[in-house]
Design a protein around this nucleic acid. Structure first.
Lengths: 217, 217
DNA sequence: CCCTAATTTTTAGAGCATAAAAAGTTTATG
DNA sequence: CATAAACTTTTTATGCTCTAAAAATTAGGG
């Protein structure tokens, strides 16, 4: 999956090495341009010129401008995953807090990497190109994050802080999804800040707790 | 809000009438083309020719191709809202069932209107153009749907089927959001059918019930 | 009936994206 | 080591979305 680290580049033939080089050069200049000039003002032609390739080559590597962006984003996975694992390893005792923190780590990571307007392009593209190669790569990240959420829940269950009768798969998927749609809303609106979404997510969970804590009927 | 019914068209001057006519003509031919030929193959030039205006006029009225699509979608609101109100008026006794039905009505309405691939464009555009005029119009629909969900919850509370201590605003927003992200997933994947999502939504709610029904710790 | 203000059309151009042919390299083979 | 084969990249051409400006049209008031 993540085998694009160039550690073993010496083993590759020249052709492969050049290919990896071009790919990395394109990603590098694209990232720099997107961060400084923004997504829309950065033209493929400019990226191609910076990376010293033709515009068509950029398309050969990344299918589309949005595909290039998605490739860029999925490169930042590792750091995010590490941060989330660290949080889980600290054995939080309150699930609501833990889910809220999970969301917060995601949002802060996202903001450190790209501007909201650029993230709108990412989310937009991930829906549109869900069946293309690059769309799938992005969806893969979601799968990994759900897995992390599940491992966290299983850990809560092991400590008897969550009933063992609960389906951890379903709960992980559900809690991640809830967190994810709040992330969407965070990205969609420039005026929504981190705290805003944090309290929203907490009141979501409080409301659900209130709904189910007194067995209905 | 919904004052674009042309009932009072006789009161308008000729200029206004022509404008309304052009607008409706464009929407009409666009809808027909999107439904028969699909979104991508339908060019603005073709729509303009069908509606007997210039291509630039289409842009004057709807900003973009996606904006035209969003305008089209928000015209189908009324029927959807009526269907949801009918369901709520039937006083369902199980909240989980009711939320699942809510989602089902939404999905079936959507599928009656446009193909999944076209809906992907809609969702994609609604994120991207969240701050533009047409983006706001679409977000407005979400607000109306959350209101419906809230009225349903308040009704449950009046019948003592949901604790009155629960914040109905927060719960409505949360349950709608959960339903909404499952709608997103329904649209994103051509291979996901209605039942698939229905059971997913139900297991979401079951999992949450299981989480909170035994007060943790 | 003419003027003006609003609206549409024309025109030109930038940028994204794709397809096919041409040119250039790398790798494999004798 | 030269040459052929395989693979990439570049060139070239084209279609579409979208914007901006000037030019043409047309409704409505005096």
């Amino acid at each position: 999956m993540e085998g694009r680290r160039t550690g073993g580049m010496a083993l590759m033939g020249l052709r492969e090495r050049q290919k990896a080089n071009r790919r990395e050069r394109i990603l590098e200049v694209a990232k720099a341009r997107f961060q400084t000039d923004g997504y829309a003002p950065t033209t493929i032609e400019l990226i191609a010129k910076d990376a010293d390739v033709s515009t068509v080559t950029v398309y050969n590597y990344f299918d589309s401008k949005a595909g290039l962006l998605l490739a860029l984003v999925s490169e930042s996975d590792q750091l995010l995953i590490r941060q989330l694992k660290t949080m889980i390893a600290q054995k939080p005792t309150d699930l609501i807090d833990a889910v809220a923190t999970f969301g917060q780590i995601l949002r802060r990571h996202a903001m450190r990497y790209l501007a909201k307007s650029t993230w709108r392009e990412v989310l937009s593209a991930s829906i549109q190109e869900g069946s293309s190669d690059f769309g799938r790569t992005y969806l893969e990240l979601d799968r990994v994050l759900v897995d992390l959420m599940r491992s966290m829940i299983v850990d809560f269950q092991a400590r008897r802080l969550v009933p063992e009768t609960v389906d951890s798969d379903a709960l992980a998927d559900c809690l991640f999804s809830l967190q994810n749609i709040r992330f969407f809303q965070f990205i969609a609106d420039d005026n929504r800040d981190d705290e805003d979404i944090d309290s929203r997510l907490r009141s979501d969970l409080k409301a659900l707790q209130g709904l189910f804590s007194t067995p209905a009927h």
